[in-house]
Amino acid sequence: MQQIKSRTVPVRMENIDTDQIIPARFLKATSREGFGKNLFRDWRYENDDENSPKADFPLNDPRWSGTILVAGKNFGCGSSREHAAWAIKDAGFEVVVSSFFADIFRNNALNNFLLPVQVSETFLQQIFEAVDADPATELSVDLPAQTITIATTGVSESFDINPYKKTCLINGYDDIDYLINMMPEIESFEADRAAV
């Protein structure tokens, strides 16, 4: 993962919890795939019916497309279900932009190479205004430079990411590989503790 430039799908709600992202009744699968079709299920469809999409929900609105999801503050709060990150990723998104992320969701996203970009509330509103004015507005996310730019206005902001996680994302490493390489140290840690 390096640079991503794309149009957006804006979901202008705050406190979007993981039960909205993927309701519990869809957590019964035993693989990681296929959750995208139920992303935002109860906001997306009338009466739980895939043939009755709610026209005003952004995922059903042809104005919105692309691989960057933009949402209000405290995105991903609630349940720890990683299925939320899987659903977003499976629906084709690579980046989620919000002014605030819940901790567990942020970790889950990073572990699935889905980039959470936390911006200021002001910048978030600028994104919403820009895409309102022109739905084709693209955002550019530059992970190495840690910047996000609104293409039409040129307005840019930098974002934070843990340097270790940044290296992982850029190089495609995951935490499990790192931990498995540490097994001898973990075993000696256990031995030291047992000796106390």
């Binding site: 990681r32 720890s80 279900r81 990683e82 299925h83 990150a85 567990i104 970790n107 889950n108 572990n111 699935n112 995951d174 935490d175 499990i176 931990l179 498995i180 540490m182 097994m183 973990i186």
Partner: peptide, 11 residues
């Protein structure tokens, strides 16, 4: 999350 469940099971 589940990726972390896997990490703890493994290490």
């Amino acid at each position: 999350g589940t990726s972390e469940v896997e990490m703890v099971l493994t290490t």
